[in-house]
Amino acid sequence: ARTNDPNWHVFRVSSLLPSPACTASKATSNSSALSVVHQHGPCSPLHARRGGAPSHVEILERDQARVNSIHRKVAAAGASVVDPARASKGVSLPAQRGISLGTGNYIVSVGLGTPAKQYSVVFDTGSDLSWVQCTPCSDCYQQNDPLFDPAQSSTYAAVPCGAQECQELDSGTCSSNKCRYEVAYGDQSQTDGNLVRDTLTLSASAKLPGFVFGCGDSNTGLFGQADGLFGLGREKVSLASQGAPNYGPGFTYCLPSSSSGNGYLSLGDAAPANAQFTAMVTNSDNPSFYYLNLVGIKVGGREIRVPTTVFSTAGGTVIDSGTVITRLPPRAYAALRSAFARYMGQYKKAPALSILDTCYDFTGHATAQIPKVALLFEGGATMSLDFTGVLYVSQVSQACLAFASNGDDTS
């Protein structure tokens, strides 16, 4: 066993699956931080009422839908010329403006209104506008908590049509001097409602008066039982941007290693002392997304052989809280898979799991070992992944390398 080898993870096979009970201890970084839990885990307030968590195959299929929609959005933003040959064949870009929700994996609990009432919302770095379902509602799905009721809040106000926030909204329209918003996600989910403002309570000591968000009165789609969604994208309306004057620009989150643990989301927090940094890249065609430059990958302490142009010509890398599995350019993924498999020869191979094609059966092993995988970013930042970031485990007999290829990038 390579217990002391810094290039290997050695772990008990029994620890691969999450505990069925919530084992979270307080993981927040300070008093204004929100607790982050997995939407379908035992710590989630949505857990008890849910109609059954999605299967691993469903999670991965929805993940692929989110990835496809990110690619479509990027392609649509970059497309300046319509290819007449494609157009004549009836090929067209999708009309959806947003990206698919995926499985909305992580949720936070926030307070809205005065007095504050708590709502469990998905947090998403891939979109900007925050919203909750509101009453009166013409078309709302069933959610975890009672709907947000503007009449019960002394600090609620509608955003008038002439307000800057309304005019800056991509989808803002005016109706009876109310600013109407619409967000259409890439999986056909949609929310429509009034743009409003009210006090957002992050903790007893951290409030954000006048927080602008959507008060959804017509909401359909794959929102599960979440009370809404909070966007942490880069545009002005996002929670990250609105919180900047109070807490400073930026935010930090930590996602727990297991769905039975918890992490945190903290606005404006200083970076941890041990953080390694890489440049945050802006793409004006896709101003919501946080781009960075991935330049290499190490497996078992050795950098895999991939020309740096494979990453640089791939269009960059987006970091996304709502995509489950990291997608790599095909040549990079092929090299990663090959290197990983070379180290895993002692284990029985297992069938593929949806988009994950490199899987192992750890049945009969008390402990197991896998090579460490590290992502290398421009500027020298190295992210040596936790072992829960290397394997996606559906069961002990099917633990898969948690990466996938972007497929045919000429398609």
Partner: peptide, 30 residues
């Protein structure tokens, strides 16, 4: 484009340092 998904981000404190236009990764963040 490549996408850095949330599985790989687990246990890292991921800091979006907007003021300095950089993203940081702190191991063992939670």
């Amino acid at each position: 484009i490549a996408i850095l998904g949330n599985t790989q981000q687990k246990t890292f404190a991921v800091a979006y340092d907007v003021a300095n236009q950089r993203i940081g990764f702190g191991a063992n963040g939670c």
